[in-house]
């Protein structure tokens, strides 16, 4: 195959055989109880230097309680897949956890701009779709996939994509390297103790991500009986053997919404936005993360039952999710 042009962006080298060997040696095949605390899950499965992917974002069904636990444990040098993200990248950068970001889309306020200017943060260009597609390639166990975009742009130049001559048609096609993250974080509506997880609603790429990541942490609004999973197998998004840890996290996307269950807390985002502008994210993190031992303590002491009730009330739609 003739390579016509190559982007100069750094990329996590795809290693399908390395991934297979990891699966062979590390992934649990049995139906065992995987429920542990967020503290244990992050401590055991997120290491400094890991490549971390997550589904959705801090606005909608993102694994926000796990973001805060990562910050609380002061994980360092993470490489994030920022596809379809929002202020979550800024939050993790403000927490000092991130050194590289593969960019699809992210909120890019003062935190990101400062970190880039000071050379603390390296960005690599992709797009939302390209990152989801790289996860799809990973989920198929192959080293790359061809696709019909990225070519011709500066985004291509700053990515790890390649323009090649397709050996079948003789036409030109872009290739992107498969992504095999170290860690996937997925927040779901329901999950059993074995890790059979249900996402209700549109989902970005929860299944692809869970399939191709070495370590998979599910946080779930609700833990349901394995029997319930088997009664409605079609509702399972992620089967158990991809999953390493199940964390019970009601309001796990706080301050974001989990569609069908609760709406978002807009006031909280304004507080984070103000902290960014005023260069006071350390104070924000102290209040919401470091001074709190857990997600549960934060919900109790910082959010409060009244706010949680309002968030539940503000979600008026259950149809399609639970009905």
């Amino acid at each position: 195959m003739t390579v016509i042009a190559s982007g100069k962006g750094e990329f996590l080298p795809p290693d399908p055989d390395g991934f297979r060997a990891y699966v062979r040696d590390h992934k649990e095949r049995r139906l065992v109880n995987k429920v542990i605390t967020a503290q244990e899950a992050v401590s055991r499965y997120v290491s400094d230097g890991d490549y971390v992917a997550y589904d959705q974002n801090i606005a909608v069904r993102g694994p926000a309680s796990l973001f805060r636990e990562i910050i609380r444990q002061r994980k360092r040098d993470l490489w994030l897949a920022a596809k379809f993200t929002w202020t979550d990248v800024s939050l993790l950068v403000a927490g000092g956890c991130v050194s590289r970001v593969d960019v699809g889309w992210m909120e890019s306020g003062p935190v990101i701009n400062r970190a880039v200017k000071e050379g603390r943060l390296k960005l690599i260009e992709w797009s939302n779709g390209a990152l989801a597609y790289r996860l799809l390639a990973g989920s198929l166990g192959v080293p790359y996939l061809p696709m019909r975009y990225l070519g011709g742009t500066d985004t291509f130049e700053q990515s790890g994509a390649k323009l090649t001559e397709d050996p079948y048609t003789g036409r030109r096609v872009c290739l992107v390297p498969a992504l095999y993250p170290d860690v996937a974080l997925v927040h779901v509506h329901q999950c059993d103790v074995h890790g059979n997880a249900r996402v209700f609603g549109a989902g970005v790429s929860p299944l692809e991500m869970a399939m191709c990541s070495k370590k998979v942490i599910i946080s779930t609004e609700e833990i349901i009986e394995p029997e319930e999973i088997r009664r409605q197998p079609q509702r399972t998004t992620i089967p158990y053997y991809f999953v390493d840890a199940v964390v019970h996290a009601p309001f796990g996307s706080y301050p974001g919404s989990t569609p069908g269950l609760y709406g978002a807390d807009l006031e909280h985002w304004l507080e984070f936005a103000a902290a960014q502008v005023q260069n006071k994210t350390d104070e924000y993190l102290e209040k919401w993360v470091h001074s709190m031992a857990s997600h549960e303590e934060m919900l109790e002491k910082r959010v409060g039952e009244q706010k949680l009730a309002m968030m539940r009330q503000s979600e008026t739609v259950r149809e399609g999710y639970y009905e």
Partner: peptide
């Protein structure tokens, strides 16, 4: 629509299908 409409239940209401990014791409 809600002020934060991205991915919200009211924004996705009565779709014909809820799929994924790779699917719509």
């Amino acid at each position: 629509l809600p002020r934060m409409m991205l991915g919200a239940s009211r924004s996705h209401y009565r779709a014909v299908a809820w799929t994924s990014m790779n699917m719509v791409d």
